[in-house]
Computed example of a mutant assay.
Amino acid sequence: MAADPFVVLQPGLGPIRATTYLPATPETVRWGRLPCGSDEAVLEVAPGTEVTIDTVSHEGLLPDQGDPVAFFGSHGVPPEAVLRDAVEIAARVSRGPSDGPHVVTGPVRVTGAQPGDLLAVTVVEALPRVPYGVVSNRHGRGALPGELPRTPGTVSVFTPVRSRPDGAVGCLPLVDGGPRVVEFPLAPFPGIVGVATDGDRRVHSVPPGAHGGNIDVNLLTAGSTVLLPVQVAGALAYVGDPHFAQGNGEVALTALEASLRLTLRFDVVPADVARSRFGDLTGPVVQTPELLVPMGLDPDLGEAMRACVRQSLGLLVARYGMAEHLAYAYLSAATDFEVSQVVDQVVGVHARIRLADFERVPS
């Protein structure tokens, strides 16, 4: 199902793929913190269920941007093209000064999921809800804190979306207010997909971890799956931080942030099957139609890289019965390791292991 990128998908309106629909309301979202094991689910589904979920971008809602109608209006967006749920969340949902920026929808309880299992969350569809987004750089954050931005205050770059015959593109001017723009393709995906942490403390929305959360891996587009080690009964899954596009690194602090209507399928991989397919995972793994994508997460980029190599080795040994020293050689000769992001306190590295390389191995 395709949506015209210039159609505004207000709550409950427009294409809703799944029979089960979860809107973003003050009762179904959290702002700046992630669900924990003591939280009540806003929805319960059986494994294999598809759910259409509205997500709301934090850009245009944060205190340094002000009221969303006024903020987007200053960039020529009429009030009727500002999402009503974004306006309501900004007005009614509390966010502490030490909380993260992200609006997170959920949690969703998946019947039967238990610690030791993996929760497989597949992005079935990702529809832009608005024809615009924002890329922001804030002082003290991004890859070059203290250097950029050059001026006081936040730099929030409003980025309209255009429809082209080969797909929608984002448009950035070469200079402020200038007529010339650079266009780049959209590849919508959720930056945050996770499961609840054990206990009664809601963790900050920014740093990713074993729970998933703010992993910001741009390969998680429609058709791809993220596998997450379940930490509490029912998993208590959530989604947020919607992106229209992101380059690896996400160096300015945010990428092209904008609200999405996501259809996700929730499946449970039992613990014994999970170990045989993926080894003993200590964090998320993404699977695309072409790739296995294990991750390494650590505040230090070098440690994140080493963690990613270890995860990759464990996956190849468990999944294919490959000798460890030969798996190490394969990773060195044939696998790209990429920086997912360097701006989320805990940085990420992910590997791109080609499935086709192993499908050609004689049985």
Rank of each mutant, 00 (worst) to 15 (best):
P97Q: 04
N137A: 07
A113P: 11
P97W: 00
R92E: 13
G133A: 03
H139Q: 15
G133S: 05
V130Q: 11
A120H: 01
P128R: 13
Y132V: 08
A90F: 08
A113M: 08
V108T: 04
A113R: 06
S94W: 12
I89V: 12
G100D: 15
H139M: 07
H139P: 06
D99A: 15
A91V: 02
Q114E: 15
A91T: 01
S136R: 04
V104K: 03
Y132E: 10
P101W: 15
P107T: 10
S98L: 13
A120C: 06
G100P: 07
T105D: 07
V124F: 00
V93H: 04
T105M: 05
T111E: 06
V135C: 10
A90P: 09
A91L: 13
V134M: 13
P97I: 05
P115I: 12
P101C: 12
V130D: 01
V103F: 07
S136C: 12
E125L: 15
R129C: 09
V130W: 06
T122P: 00
R95P: 02
R109T: 00
L119R: 02
P107R: 15
V123H: 03
D99V: 10
T122S: 14
H102A: 06
R129W: 09
R141Q: 13
R141H: 07
R92Q: 14
H139K: 14
